[in-house]
Amino acid sequence: MEFGQKRVILLTGDYGCGKTNLAVNLAILLAEKGKVSVVDMDTVNPYFRTADFGETLTKRGINVVFPQYANTNLDIPVLNFDLESVISESDFTIIDIGGSDAGAYPAGRYESLLKSLGEQLEMLYLFNMYRLCERSADEIVKTLREIESACRLKCTGLVNNSNLGAETTRETVAASGEFAEEVAEKTGLPIRFTCVTENEKPDETHLPIKRLVTLPWETEREI
């Protein structure tokens, strides 16, 4: 899977589809090619968010931007950053927005800025066949359209992120192939890549990703 053609990658999808995990993986991957900013625009989800990786990513020279009150005890959806300067000062910007249409509304505030990027913007829709709320292609089409209308932007590609968390195997991912094709057909969008476990080899259609969003009692690991 080749990255680096698009300057801004906006990750969308239903909540729990793996946006944050992919955002952190992509940030690390793209940091080899240039200056990366990762923006946590999640105003819906209180835990398990990109802001959790602030320290680790900063150490790698990645600029981490998140809402003022993320990971505090305040449940206040304030986005107090200047996205335009973040994008203009970075070679690559990854934007991790909240799940479903509720989480996509804040991105709508940046509609004109993001649209002005034209071909430089990739808006990816992630799906996971193993989520109960994403069991049918029709359901996914519905959520995708809701998200597009909430943020007033159009998705440009799909990511097949079908996984079972810590229990994901090669077979888990392989079994989602047919389903992914159906989603591509019904949405009319190309599958940009399929996420596979980290020990797999990358190729044109497969991106090995690490499971970085883990639970507090799992073995601490190096990113």
Partner: peptide, 14 residues
Amino acid sequence: EKVLMKGNEALAEA
């Protein structure tokens, strides 16, 4: 069949 769920949504579904 195995599915991947959040604790809260699993409780609601159950």
